[in-house]
Amino acid sequence: MKFTIQVNEGPYQHQSSDTAYQFAKAALEKGHEIFRVFFYHDGVNNATRLTTPPQDDRNVVNRWSELAKEHNLDLVVCVAAAQRRGIADKDEAQRNGKDADNLADGFRISGLGQLIEGGIQSDRLVVFGD
């Protein structure tokens, strides 16, 4: 089955990103396809490489990056939600006149159309959030 996953909450405050990650991993292990993971609302905060959790805690951001690398996942961060919350890649930072960027490896910034397309192209769209 082909899945699109939507993550609506930030890391650490909520468990949704953890659950979405575990769902994605389990689905891939069972041979399912992940068409896309879309990060929306505070979910865009899962994409900052500046995240520095204590050493004995899981690194939510790196975990997504590693899963993306391993399975060639498409991790998409909503541009409008990202701009509001200060998540930027090099191009976005430059476009908006910011002095830094923080997008983690394996993520890309794009528009809400990517979420709708995920809904159209996938057998199931699964939403993780409050």
């Binding site: 929306y40 609302h41 409008a80 809400l112 159309g113 979420l115 709708i116 409050d130």
Partner: peptide
């Protein structure tokens, strides 16, 4: 912010 950002999805989605 859920309601506002939901409305943004609806508006973008309308183009599809």
């Amino acid at each position: 912010v859920y309601a506002l950002e939901s409305l943004e999805v609806v508006l973008i989605g309308a183009a599809f």
